[in-house]
Design a protein around this nucleic acid. Sequence first.
DNA 1: ACACTTGTCTTGAATGCTTCAAGACAGCTT
DNA 2: AAGCTGTCTTGAAGCATTCAAGACAAGTGT
Lengths: 155, 155
Amino acid sequence: MPTTEIPRDHESLLRGAALRVTRPRLAVLAAVDAHPHADTDSIIRAVRESLPDVSHQAVYDVLRALTGADLLRRIQPAGSVARYEARVGDNHHHVVCRTCGAIADVDCAVGHTPCLTASDDHGFVVDEAEVVYWGTCPTCATAPPSVTASSEGHR
Amino acid sequence: MPTTEIPRDHESLLRGAALRVTRPRLAVLAAVDAHPHADTDSIIRAVRESLPDVSHQAVYDVLRALTGADLLRRIQPAGSVARYEARVGDNHHHVVCRTCGAIADVDCAVGHTPCLTASDDHGFVVDEAEVVYWGTCPTCATAPPSVTASSEGHR
DNA sequence: ACACTTGTCTTGAATGCTTCAAGACAGCTT
DNA sequence: AAGCTGTCTTGAAGCATTCAAGACAAGTGT
């Protein structure tokens, strides 16, 4: 994973979305590519490895611009901060660990937006069905239940 | 049927969950019953109509206790604050309006936890599948786009 | 009934993610 | 190269939620 290389891929992505090509934007795209499902803070730290002086505000701004242009996807499971991923266009879902918050991708079980059909949509015009699988990741499942971690669920 | 009460009343619900019966808790249960999908602030205001002096902290605490006892369900669509509903036990999902944030219930399309089977669970032990349908509610669909709303972002 | 014990509520403050605002600056077009 | 427009920097505020410690009341046993 050559992080020093300037990926022309990202540049054309930005141009294709009619967005200006700036170093913070390229760095954010690279950071999200390198760290899927990373939260904003991780992205900021990753970006600052190549651009030490970017402001957090710039990152927030870039993330919003890229999300609005459908170059990035923002996911936010309940109880978690905002996270971003570069996989867009395909409709895939996520498994979230209740214990540690780890996220993994899950391709749609049936393959072609099956859940999009709600039984009764109450007149809503539905354009997306988001599925979140809640469970326990392998690491937390095998780890011995610590006092602090196990009592998180209900006190 | 001499002494048997319908266990629907809130007091027996609390006792059944080994929780003390207090006025704030009864008021919170009543408020959530009256306002499905209400956010914390709405619940606080509703509770204070009958108990003007409850602290917000008490409501947060009660909501956490009731959620932990599975008497309430906490839902939190991305970009929204925490909301609570009294329907528990059945696995139903939600439609969320992108514009105004309105939420409506949707019974599971297939009826018996169908989405629980992920194509590849990455070793996660999945115990729940949460589905959120994103779209536009009837009100926002018919409402003419306001100046402020249209300039928010292009989508 | 009475006091005891434990969990609940009140008060007050802090935390942290995210956004707002105004000016400086740089990318893109002519 | 000049100008325009959108982007980045700086600084600070907003708001939902949580933490902490003490006061208080709901259950429980004598």
